[in-house]
Amino acid sequence: MSAQLAAYTTSTGEAFQFWVLGTVAVLGALCTVFMKKAVHSALSLAGTMIVLAVFYLANGAYFLGIVQIVVYTGAIMMLFLFVVMLVGVTAADSLKETIKGQRWLALLCGVGFGVLLLAGIANASLKDFAGTGQANANGNVEGLAALIFTKYVFAFEITGALLITAAVGAMVLTHRERTERAKTQRELSEQRVREGKYVPPLPAPGVYARHNAVDIAGLLPDGTPSELTVSKTLRERGQIRDVSTDAINDLRALEQRSEERLERTPIEPETFKRPEEASK
């Protein structure tokens, strides 16, 4: 392909790649916005970013393409996932809007803005693409380096300072100063004995080997679940699963199905309810 041609059109291969991967990118972006769980959003975003990396490469920005994959998709998205895990992976957002009119206003603004932006781009006379062939003649990385260390050297240095500041800031923000010495295991056990509460080790979580298992409260002798058996973190997130009635209900369902198959009239169609729930 001649340089002249590259000025205003691309190869068919690139066009094909653009239409396929562009669709993927838009879908990924939409999923990022509309997925209920933060993890799914993060994964969609990672996909979009990889597509963008390919587009960088296609546009002659080889260095940026690689950096996009290594830094963005590799490091930043992992950071996101890490925080998502920290905050609670299953804490699904409800997408129900709480601020009156917010969603409609946001959509209106978004559509308006998008239309205006696209109209602006369409309106601009962007016909003559010079192409990066000339600029990348000595290699893309060398070209960038020449610019960064000459023309943009101050910006580069300041960016370095910014990064250091950000790193320190993140540490300061997440670091918690201990105001008192942490209690040793020995002291803690002594305190438990002195207070007379939970002298033995905390009970283990439920015994049903399903789901996470650790999020299922163990049952007390009277059949009620004990929150003590579940780890404090899960308790605070409200992620305890109550399965005390699941097994019985399953049994009922099984009985019912077998009775249906045997074409008997069901004796007790309702599912079993815990006494206090039934009384409500």
Binding site: L105, A106, C109, G110, G112, F113, L116, L117, G120
Partner: peptide, 9 residues
């Protein structure tokens, strides 16, 4: 965002 849209306009 609305303001930004207006600016573009």
């Amino acid at each position: 965002f609305g303001g930004a849209a207006l600016l573009v306009a």
